[in-house]
Structure formats: structure tokens, C-alpha cells
Amino acid sequence: MIRLGKQTIKLNNPPTIVNTASIVGPKESEGPLAKYFDQCLEDEFWGEKTWEKAESKIIKETVNSVISKSGIPSNDINFCFAGDLLNQCISSSFGLRELNIPFFGIFGACSTFVEGLCLASVFLDSGAANNILCATSSHFCSAEKQFRFPLELGNQRPPTAQWTVTGSGAVVVSKVGTGPYITHITPGKIVDMGIKDANNMGAAMAPAALDTLITHLNDTQRKPSYYDAIITGDLGHIGKEILIELAESKGFNIKNIYNDCGVLIFDKNSQDTHSGGSGCACIGTVFSGYFFKQLKNRKLNRILLIATGALTNATSSQQGESIPSIAHAVAIEN
């Protein structure tokens, strides 16, 4: 692998995404992408006693499913990169404690999915591994409980609020294969434009997505039109609009090929999800469920996947801190 420009890495032996798996909660099952997910749950507890246990079960079952779908024995999977939103990433470590695969717990908030893909690609290209598992999860109820208010509280969600996706997405990436290939990775910088409103995450994260997008295009000397689709993680309706306008102001027109997983996963009008979906599982499930199949069927051949994350917690927002954000990008091509 070689470094291009400021912060992009070009993979000389592009790793293949062998297969993906996705499990989503009931609300996502009512959304427009429902038919693409592997499994749709009927209730948020899935037979468990707590939201946290339910989330662990979701990531565990998603990982089991992707391993069996990939056809690679779990003994041959060398490493696992996983993370989630709960404190100290307990969904991943509790859900995967019986997996018996060397484990890296990673945290990039909602950007974790692509952060995992970036790290896996470098591991695979360097020869340190042959097969790697990446997984993330999030759960509306456990996230609300940790970051916001109890579910029973009679409060109103402002129109800028986003809805944490319940679900998990997992992929197996291999050194050799027939594609789709991860050809470039662009890890992002932390960007903080001073947004303090924890109910407007899309606006907080859009500048980070812009920074990574422009850096990637400059580093690779590609135009936006090189890609069939540019997809961000969870900017939602407001963040999506902001990113389009910000990119335009910098001379990049992405309007026709750009979309956001948070916009795609819910139907804003009928599901009352305000600005759209968010959470680690947002890009995790939408990529695993929808975009991977589009790549496999050659309906899309070149996509740039940019996962965005708000690097904040409940304490920092109570202390009046602004929201530092990050975005990591991977280019996936057939």
C-alpha cells in the first residue's frame, strides 16, 4: 500500500468484501429498505431482559450470520474489529465474548463501521491477516437511555433530532477474492465547527464529512462523478442538505450521486423520524443490506462510503462542550 496526498491510502492488493449480514429492529422493518435486510425483529427486546442485552444479542447473531454466509470457517478469521455506542463498547465485547477471534474494540461513534473497514484493509493488504470480521451495532432504546431521556418521559423531539437505528451490520473482508474491492481508504480528521446542540447531530457532523470527502477527492485526483454513488452514514435530512451546499460552495457538485443512509432507512413522513436515522447501525445495516447487494449485482460499481461520527457523550454535552465530529471514507469498487 502507498499513501496518496495528505491522508489517503491506496491498497495495492485491494481486499474483497466477501459477504455482509444485517439484522434490524421493528421500526427499521417498516422502513423503505426493509426487504434488503437479512432479519427483521418484531420487538426491541428480542427475548432479552434489558436493552443492553438485546443489543449484544443482535450483534452476536449478525456476526454468526455473516460468518456462515461468508463460507469461511471462523477459525480462519484472524481478527475482529467491532464497536458500538454504549459506554466502553459493551454491546460488542459482551456480544462477541464467545466468538474466539482476536478482538479489537474500536470507537468512532457512528463512524465505527468504516473505521473498522479501514483498519481491516490495512491489516489485509500488509499480510497481517487473511480474513477479518468487522461489525457494529446500535439500539434506539439503549442509546436514548444513555444519551438522552428515559423512554417513558413525555418530552417532544425537536425537528432536527435523529432516530438511532436499532440493528447491526457485519462484514467479512478477505485478502483474496472477486470483489467488491476496497481500493482506497481516507481516515478523517476531527472537525469541530462549534455546534453544541445534541439534537442536531447532522449539522455537527456535516463539516467532518465535507473535509474527508474533499481530501479524498484531492488525494486521489478523482472527481465526484468518478463514483456511481457517494454515501454518508447518518447526516440525516438536514445534514445531507448542508453537505450538498457546503460541497457546492467549495466547487464540488455531488447532488445527483449523493445520498445518506439516515435518509434512506426511514420514511420521514410516515415514520415520524424527524431528520432521519443515526447510530452505528445506520450505515452498518444500510451498507450490509442494501449497497453491498447493489455492488454485487453490478447496479453500482464504484461507491465512496463516508461514515460520520459525533465524538461526544452525555457528560460533555451537559458541560456545554461543542460536538467534535469525524468522518472516515472507503472507496469500494468492482
Binding site: 417532544q156 432536527t160 448542508i242
Partner: peptide, 13 residues
């Protein structure tokens, strides 16, 4: 500038 822009872009209740 960004905060002012976001205030303008965000829908009000």
C-alpha cells in the same frame, strides 16, 4: 458563520 448558517437551515418547531 457555520452556526448562523445551521440556525437558518434547521427547521423550527
Amino acid at each position: 458563520e457555520y452556526n448562523d448558517y445551521v440556525d437558518k437551515k434547521s427547521p423550527n418547531s
